[in-house]
């Protein structure tokens, strides 16, 4: 089996076991993917405690409803990543709203966590890495701001001083390039 098929098979096996209520599978799920989920949450939120909360929410939710993951669409890592991202973004927007209500603080540029010594089990495929590394700088910049800072495309446009439509298009173009790389590796059709 090639790597992609093996990963997909392993994902399927793990999810089937989770659906069957196999508690050991829950531990294996955590061991395989908590590095990515936590790192993503921390990267977006910047607060370790909140990142831990998000990580917990993601795994508890998945344990409760593992059947929501469609093994034919994307990897388990990607699915967990989207859960983590949504929750992390919700967190910072809630915090943002709270701060707006409570104080008027001076904006400071977001600090971003350093990632030295990071060891994540969820290495992405070579094709995807290649495409990400070759993304046009403006598209990648827009995507990083939206994804890792939790900005809306309007905020991205504001930050970069570009029209909102342009920011939106850059996001789409970048995502599409990556999606095409993912789907070029599988027999699945990009709809």
């Amino acid at each position: 089996m090639d790597e992609k098929v093996r990963d997909s098979f392993a994902d399927r096996v793990l999810v089937e076991r989770l659906i069957a209520g196999d508690e050991r599978a829950l531990g294996e799920l955590y061991d395989s993917h908590s590095g990515f989920v936590y790192a993503l949450a921390l990267r977006v939120i910047g607060d370790p405690q909140a990142a831990e909360d998000v990580t917990q929410e993601v795994f508890v939710m998945f344990w409760q409803m593992p059947e929501r993951f469609d093994t034919t669409r994307g990897s388990l890592r990607a699915f967990l990543g989207t859960l983590a991202h949504r929750r992390a973004v919700d967190h910072i927007r809630r915090e943002e709203a709270r701060r707006r209500r409570e104080t008027k603080s001076t904006f400071e540029p977001p600090s971003v966590p350093a990632v030295e010594d990071i060891a994540l089990s969820s290495a992405t495929s070579r094709e995807v890495r290649k495409v990400v590394n070759r993304l046009p700088a403006d598209q990648r910049q827009a995507l990083e701001l939206a994804y890792f800072n939790g900005y809306t495309y309007r905020q991205v446009a504001n930050v970069l001083g570009i029209p909102e439509g342009t920011a939106k298009s850059r996001l789409r173009l970048a995502l599409r390039r990556i999606a095409e790389a993912i789907y070029s590796e599988t027999s699945e059709q990009w709809v």
Binding site: F36, R77, F79, I178, A179
Partner: peptide, 14 residues
Amino acid sequence: NYRIAGAEFAASIL
């Protein structure tokens, strides 16, 4: 598809 791409983007960066 876009959502999966976003997560794979994050994985490739992280």
